[in-house]
């Protein structure tokens, strides 16, 4: 293998997309770059990748990576249902959903919840900037109480924490990160790809045009000052030996469904990502302090995903023909005689 290709022999360029049409400095563009790196390093097959999104700035980003792959830019807040249908139709697809905070926590909250409770095998990214960019800066439902709009208006309504909500709903993989922290984000993305079930990644992604001012809790400066990193993360793909030295008790080894590992090296906090109640408390306590925690908040690798629960046959449903789907003539006659 040369240095210029990944494990399936593709160059990094294959993972690139069209030039971005978002604002210069937008957090979403950084996420796109981290995604390209994660997908390239992971060795995702472009033809099997289904890039799904809703409507909004975030939902435009599937055009900016893996141009060869199929994309489905759906309706505002309705990506989860389309992702569910696509996964059921072809369980071999790697479904990658990209949404925003308005798309997820306002108009799409219902579908978000039900995607999680069905544990549809997909990666669901929330590019979270606390505001509506395309319509020029209105608050979204993830805006923090007390956060200031560019116009000076203060948000008085309770914030919806998409991670806390996901854990409450029984999500099996919940992480939070920051668009500017590629070191943490790339391994979390790769772990999300490896996880079998819904992997939620809430990525704080500042809006440079409408929400990057003093008084906003989603500005670059605020995020840098209040990001409490729970652990450093290292993704070790399946089959690779774990060659990291660590003192016993300092690293949490998350074993993922495809044989890969996510090694979480504990920092100041004593966060246990397998403890749902503990994760909720960690989120809550940080929020009360005006901070937010990043890292793998919660993971449960023992739950079946939707396709497994439905006992779907291994062959993608989309490929089944008459022979597989129609009963035999004799069975049909018997059925008709039973009336």
């Amino acid at each position: 293998m040369t240095a210029n290709v990944n494990i399936i022999g593709l160059t990094r360029d294959v993972y690139k997309g069209l030039p971005t049409t978002l604002c210069a400095g937008c957090g979403h563009n950084s996420i796109t770059n981290h995604l390209i790196k994660a997908l390239y390093e992971y060795g995702v097959e472009p033809h099997n990748l289904a890039k799904m999104s809703g409507i909004g700035c975030s939902s435009k980003t599937p055009a900016y990576f893996v141009e060869q792959a199929h994309g489905f830019n759906s309706l505002h807040g309705r990506m989860p249902s389309a992702a569910t249908g696509a996964k059921l139709a072809n369980r071999e697809l790697m479904v990658l959903g990209i949404s925003g905070d308005g798309d997820t926590a306002s108009i799409g909250l219902g579908q978000y919840c039900h995607l999680i409770r069905r544990n549809v095998d997909c990666t669901y990214i929330v590019e979270n900037n606390g505001c509506y960019g395309l319509t020029k800066g209105q608050f979204s439902a993830t805006a923090d109480v007390g956060s200031k709009q560019k116009s000076g208006k203060i948000n008085e309504y309770a914030t919806i924490d998409v991670c806390g909500l996901a854990i409450q709903l029984g999500a099996t993989f919940v992480a939070r990160s920051f668009s500017g922290d590629g070191k943490q984000l790339v391994p979390l993305l790769q772990a999300a790809f490896s996880h079998r079930g819904t992997a939620i990644l809430d990525i704080i992604s500042p809006c440079v045009t409408f929400n990057d001012h003093e008084g906003s809790t989603k500005s670059y400066q605020y995020v840098k000052d209040h990001d409490v990193v729970l652990h450093t993360a290292d993704y070790i793909s399946g089959g690779k030996e774990i060659a990291v030295d660590y003192e016993p008790g300092t690293v949490h080894d998350v074993q993922l469904d495809d044989g890969s590992h996510l090694l979480l090296r504990k920092l100041d906090t004593n966060h246990d990502p397998t403890d749902a109640i503990g994760a909720l408390r960690t989120i809550h306590d940080a929020s009360a302090r005006g901070e937010f925690v990043t890292g793998l908040l919660y993971v449960d690798t023992h739950q079946q995903d939707l396709c497994a629960r439905e006992r779907l046959t291994k062959v993608p449903l989309a490929r089944l023909d008459e022979k597989a789907l129609r009963m035999h003539k004799s069975e049909w006659s018997k059925l008709m005689e039973s009336f």
């Binding site: 309706l75 309705r78 249902s81 996964k87 059921l88 072809n90 697809l93 449903l317 989309a318 490929r319």
Partner: peptide, 20 residues
């Protein structure tokens, strides 16, 4: 069994897009 009819339609078109 979807959460509402709109989600049901979303699943149908997601599945139709993917070839089912």
């Amino acid at each position: 069994q979807a959460e509402d009819e709109l989600a049901a339609a979303g699943m149908v078109f997601g599945a139709g897009w993917a070839g089912a």
